[in-house]
Design a protein around this nucleic acid. Structure first.
Lengths: 252, 252
DNA sequence: CGCTTCGTTGAGCCCCATCAAAGTAGGTGG
DNA sequence: CCACCTACTTTGATGGGGCTCAACGAAGCG
């Protein structure tokens, strides 16, 4: 098992997708109608390989649950390229025969929604300009998160890496209204997954998280994360909100 | 200085761009005519910041020389996100107001060519389908190289990282006819740059390169690299050619 | 109530960072 | 043509951050 499955399956419709995209570029009525018409759902349990490397992809939205883009090495080592969170697109790509450049694994039970009609509509008629714009901005943000991942792995210490990653995830979850309230926020990845994401060993992830806890930065128990001192975490890790202010909602 | 500038400035026209793209998707006569009409050149010396982070970008081709996409940390630390080689696109982006997600620095004298007319032509008329396809494939490859960079930094040892990076660069250079012949190939990055790219210290890059040399894997002197045992390097580092065979030319 | 998965903690060590200094090669000006 | 400077490369010594091995605790589940 890659992840604990103690989170309840969360019910959500395309409204979350709409909420997120409209924050990136205000959608028009036809855009929203188009998104509401989507109805090809899939539900997959944790550890499902949603996409395999080199396989053809088809565009979908992740509506609820967490997934991870991973690359497998010959000897079984595994690198998490990045996390895919509710509201994110999967396999959006303008190439005619899109091949997955990495695998996608469900970390929790996930709900996904076929987005093929959206892509077709965008290709066919240009009167969905705001929607196209929102999707393009989201793609740009994804690329920026990839670069953040490179900086984490290349230049940050263990303590900084985890601080930085936690802030990224909080920021991205806030953009889909998973604010971290009094209860904290749902944080499903296991320490093994965090290790594969940060290039650290499971053991060292554990020690570093304990350190963050003892320093009063975070609280983490039973898959719930509470961020106590975000400014300190940002100062430690150098995390900055994505720069172009147009990319993000106010609460990021 | 980030780089030695001992390489002669190499003269090349759009033919290199055409050669590369036509290998990705056979271009048609109008495609080629369009590329040959490009004539807005720029020549920049080493260490020029071709793009700054957060700045608006305009699409260009890198025709000759090497550049690096970098991210700067507050404390002056620097991470090389990836290398930009002859034939690569710069700032190709379908967003309406593309902002650079990282800076771009020239490692050698570079020649670039404005690609705005290409983007406009693709947007205006769909009869440049092969060209659009080639550019999309190139973009997909760029994303795949980013993931390779993540795997290098996250999961490989110093010895493996340098082996892997060297093979990637050879592969990409081969795609623009910079084969490594008897003389080896031009390899301008300094050990400092290699360190910033691989997440290693300058000193350790030096030691690891010596190791590779002593093991008979490579020869590297005065900015020329000779790869003696590519299969061994591939076995060590797990490097694989980009998987979809359609992505690459035969000599990659 | 045993099994499985995840989290936690300790001991030892190695890879690689850091500090320091010397060697080499190109470029420039007297 | 030599002296000097700068940028890059090379090598040594030392220490620390993080890995590995090992084992135990905790929690969910059938």
């Amino acid at each position: 098992m890659l992840s604990s499955s103690r989170q309840p399956i969360e019910r959500a419709g395309p409204e979350r997708i709409i909420a997120r995209l409209t924050r990136l570029a205000p959608l028009t009525a036809p855009d929203i109608a188009l998104l509401r018409q989507l109805d090809d759902w899939r539900h997959d349990p944790p550890d499902t390989h949603l996409i395999r490397e080199g396989q053809r992809t088809t565009p979908r939205f992740l509506v609820s649950g967490w997934a991870a883009r991973i690359r497998l090495l010959d000897d079984g080592r595994r690198q998490v390229i990045g996390f895919v969170l509710p509201g994110d697109g999967i396999g959006f790509c303008r190439r005619p025969q899109p091949m997955a450049t990495c695998a996608l694994v469900a970390l929790t039970p996930v709900q996904t929604l076929d987005a093929e009609p959206v892509i077709e509509a965008l290709a066919a008629m240009p009167d969905h300009a705001p929607l196209a714009r929102a999707i393009n901005i989201a793609a740009g943000m994804d690329e920026a998160w990839l670069m953040d991942q490179i900086v984490r792995l290349g230049k940050l210490t263990a303590y900084e890496r985890l601080s930085h990653l936690i802030l990224e995830l909080r920021c991205r979850l806030a953009a889909v209204d998973h604010a971290d309230d009094a209860d904290g926020l749902s944080f499903p990845p296991t320490q093994e997954v965090l290790g594969d994401a940060t290039g650290l060993s499971l053991v060292h992830v554990n020690r570093t998280l304990r350190q963050l806890r003892e320093d009063g930065m975070i609280g983490l128990r039973n898959g719930r994360l509470k961020i106590h001192d975000a400014p300190a975490l940002a100062a430690i890790s150098g995390f900055r909100q994505p720069r172009p202010s147009e990319w993000v909602g106010p609460e990021c």
